[in-house]
């Protein structure tokens, strides 16, 4: 009898835990999306296939590395790294500095892990490098992205950019824009 009550109690604890876990991740994502500061990144997309999660557009960032100046902290591979951000003259985001611990004076930093070092540069993966679309839209997006990248004149305003919300180390994609239009809308108006 007693073991039965414990078992039933455990059953409810586990079931509620199963609901709370995704709920917790969702609310923390929502928190970043509503309260986080917007940063505009300029990516260059490519498109691999992820069988487990459908399809997505993979985004490569030129901001995935930082040349460490003398006197700055050094990093080993596969280590936590905290990156502060700054805007360049065109209004796009660049990585400012890298730290071993979370900076205390600003919530606008990204936490990720280092990949490797080359010389004085440290390479890392930015935690927002996949934009999920379905299997029909993803190849289309890739095709359009290639076209837009070809047509782009180096000094003009970039035709592809992504808005990312950043708060206390977390960074989430808000929207991906092609020629200033949100990607899904763009793909529907420019089909084929």
């Amino acid at each position: 009898m007693n073991t039965n009550i414990i078992r039933t109690l455990l059953f409810f604890v586990v079931m509620i835990g199963y609901l709370l876990f995704p709920f917790y991740s969702i609310s923390s994502y929502q928190n970043v999306l509503t309260d986080g500061e917007v940063f505009r990144f300029r990516p260059a997309p490519v498109d691999p296939y992820d069988a487990f999660r459908g399809k997505y557009v993979r985004l490569d960032f030129p901001q995935n590395r930082l040349v460490l100046e003398k006197g700055q902290a050094t990093f080993k591979r596969d280590q936590d790294i905290f990156l502060t951000l700054k805007e360049d003259s065109l209004g796009y985001t660049q990585i400012d500095k890298a730290f071993h611990r979370a900076p205390e004076n600003t919530p606008n930093y990204i936490k990720t892990r280092t990949l490797y070092n080359i010389g004085s540069s440290v390479y890392f993966q930015l935690p927002f490098d996949k934009y999920f679309l379905n299997e029909e839209l993803a190849p289309l997006a890739e095709k359009k992205a290639r076209e837009l990248t070809w047509n782009r004149d180096g000094n003009n305003q970039a035709s592809i950019y992504m808005d990312v919300r950043v708060k206390n180390g977390k960074a989430l994609i808000e929207e991906l824009y092609f020629e200033g239009i949100p990607i899904k809308e763009y793909l529907h108006t420019n089909e084929k």
């Binding site: 995704p22 991740s25 969702i26 994502y29 999306l33 487990f52 999660r53 459908g54 997505y56 935690p127 927002f128 490098d129 996949k130 934009y131 999920f132 989430l172 994609i173």
Partner: peptide, 11 residues
């Protein structure tokens, strides 16, 4: 778990 990370583009 997978759907949520897909929805929020969490890689």
């Amino acid at each position: 778990l997978a759907l949520i990370s897909q929805t929020y583009h969490v890689d």
